[in-house]
């Protein structure tokens, strides 16, 4: 290495050092710390406890509670994802057309995504309320139901409600990403397809969808990761009930850590959750790496 190269190398190290330090402090340290904690039985308020080795994991893996929560997390993630993608793509296609008030509509669509989760959930709980909620009122008025429905306190209603609110809250993300991609599809491709004899539906399946494939793969992976660890929306809407039926893994972590004061157990749940998410994260990394090296 020549002196000049060494100087450049040192400069490079100096430039990335702050980022590395910050990432170490806020990601690597907490991660290692969580793994370390998961080998202890710790009482949260005092943070005092003793090492138990793999006992926490043994308990988790042999409890029906964990497997039920994992299943619940999958149901929530899959359900809300399907709705987000379906509704998001549909809305993006609509907003890509020359419709009246397009700019206004584009701004309004983003509203659920930007509104605070607490506020959104409060409004939805109000709508869902079985005594004075407008949803029941309208459905009864329309003759669809004759008794008020308990939207959040019974199954499967609670899960359906949570999934619906989740879709409402997060579909704008899909809209933004898909719409951005739609606007870059060259108009000539559609014109060529028209001349080649493709109808509206064919143009969608043969031109639009293939062009959306990349962005949809990324959006789906990101949304899986984000929905999987969603906490506030579910916690505020149902608190995990009825009877733990909407208690996803993040809610259990919270419950163990601050409800039952079992910080070690909470850490073990969190690590277990991370292992599941790791699959999706690796898929995301592999996918984005494939795309950057064609």
């Amino acid at each position: 290495m020549t002196p000049l190269e060494r100087r450049y190398a040192l400069l490079g190290l100096a430039l990335i050092a702050p980022t590395v330090l910050i990432l170490t402090a806020v990601i690597v340290y907490p991660l290692l710390s969580a793994i370390y904690l998961s080998f202890f039985s710790i009482y949260t308020p005092t943070l005092a406890g003793k090492a138990v080795g793999l006992e926490n994991y043994r308990t988790i893996l042999s409890s029906a509670y964990f497997w039920h929560a994992l299943w619940t997390t999958f149901v929530w993630t899959a359900g809300t994802l399907v709705l987000q993608i379906g509704f998001g793509v549909g809305m993006a296609l609509l907003l890509n057309q020359n419709i009246l008030f397009r700019s206004l509509a584009r701004s309004l669509v983003l509203f659920p995504y930007f509104i605070s989760t607490v506020v959104a959930v409060l409004v939805w709980r109000w709508l869902f309320n079985d005594l004075y909620g407008i949803l029941n009122h309208l459905l009864i008025a329309a003759g669809v139901i004759d008794m008020p429905v308990d939207w959040l306190g019974s199954m499967p209603n609670a899960m359906v409600s949570v999934i619906t609110v989740g879709a409402w809250k997060f579909f704008p993300f899909v809209v933004i990403a898909v719409l951005a991609r739609l606007q870059t599809i060259p108009e000539h491709l559609y014109e060529a397809a028209r001349i080649d004899g493709a109808g509206t539906f064919s143009r969608f399946t043969d031109v639009t969808l293939p062009q959306l494939r990349d962005v949809l793969s990324i959006v789906i992976l990101l949304r899986i990761i984000w929905d999987f660890k969603e906490f506030d929306l579910i916690y505020l809407l149902t608190g995990g009930g009825p009877m733990d039926n909407t208690r996803t893994l993040p809610l259990i972590v919270y419950q163990q850590a601050f409800g039952l004061n079992q910080m070690g157990m909470a850490a073990a749940y969190a690590v277990a959750m991370m292992v599941v998410m790791l699959v999706f994260m690796l898929a995301y990394l592999a996918y984005s790496r494939d795309r950057s090296t064609p």
Binding site: P186, H188, L189, E191, A192, A193, R194, I195, D196, G197, A198, G199, D206, V207, P210, Q211, R213
Partner: peptide, 20 residues
């Protein structure tokens, strides 16, 4: 008559090949 039914073919400046 729709473009697809005019029995014409067109070559575009950008070629407009289907990339996938």
């Amino acid at each position: 008559v729709a473009p697809g039914e005019r029995d014409i073919a067109m070559v575009f400046q950008s070629y407009a090949l289907y990339p996938h």
